[in-house]
Simulated scan of single mutants.
Amino acid sequence: MDLVESSERPRLSLVLPVLDEAATVARHLAALQALRARGAELLVVDGGSSDGTADLARPAVDRLIDSPRGRAVQMNAGASASRGDVLLFLHADTMLPPAADELIHRAIAAGASWGRFDVRIDGRHRLLRVVERMMNWRSRLTGIATGDQAIFVRRDVFLAVGAYPELPLMEDIALSKRLRQVAPPACLRESVTTSGRRWEKRGVLRTIVLMWRLRAGYFLGADPQTLAVRYGYLPRQR
């Protein structure tokens, strides 16, 4: 995969995959404008939204990219079009801390090849506090990061490991396993805030159990496509 070359690269490129996020995309992008003002590049990669997400995003980004649906496919498309020395992959329902760019630059300057933030889940259910603590603790213990934790990586390292494996599910786990072979992650204690909507929609306890089963299946060699269907992902051709 070839990334766009430029003699005037931004230090940081944010890659945001979206699909039918019209209800929240404008608010989310508004929160990222301060980073753009400080020189970060913002790319939104639309996977075929049918609700006007792309039109809402266009005025607030440096590049709007059309892509086949699939989070890994979309993130790779964004990376291919990016110019930054460091790539930050951000889910559409995750908000960064205000100084995220400086925190990342400090980690990279200190020698990190890649890393992630701690995560806080937005929601009132008491079990969500347990979930976020377990996610952060597990990540430190295993060197595996999830997409909810806003993975960042040096551009050259991302290329060296072959980018995101284009899986329908667990692409973040697969990338982390590749990156972990290069170096352990920088585990930043500052938190991103991710929406609790998927836990609350299905039921928090039910979602916890489902995710444990899916991750266990993945590590035991189950087909990611089968796991994605169990999660509720329905591939769509464009």
Rank of each mutant, 00 (worst) to 15 (best):
G78N: 02
G143R: 00
V73T: 11
R133D: 14
V130I: 12
I65H: 06
D101V: 01
F117D: 02
A145T: 01
T146S: 13
M135Y: 13
D66W: 10
A79G: 05
G70K: 12
P97F: 06
D66A: 15
S139V: 05
I65L: 13
D62A: 06
V119P: 00
P98D: 14
A150D: 03
R154P: 03
A72K: 10
A112P: 02
S139H: 10
A60L: 15
D93Y: 04
V130R: 14
R126G: 12
A92H: 11
D156W: 08
I65C: 09
S80L: 04
I144T: 04
S67P: 03
E102R: 15
W114G: 03
D66I: 03
G84M: 09
D148N: 13
R138E: 11
S82L: 03
S67H: 07
F152G: 07
L90W: 00
R155T: 02
T146W: 09
P98V: 06
F158G: 06
L64W: 12
Q74M: 15
M75K: 14
R63K: 13
H105R: 15
D85V: 11
H105K: 12
M134K: 11
H91F: 05
D93E: 08
G78C: 05
M134F: 14
A99F: 06
D62H: 13
D122Y: 05
G78S: 05
G111I: 01
A145V: 03
G123N: 02
L141V: 11
D118A: 15
G147T: 06
D118F: 14
S67W: 09
I151N: 06
D148L: 13
V131Y: 10
Q74D: 08
M75F: 11
V131G: 09
R106Y: 04
G78K: 04
L90S: 05
R155D: 08
D85G: 15
A79I: 02
F152M: 00
R126L: 10
D93Q: 02
D118C: 09
M135T: 10
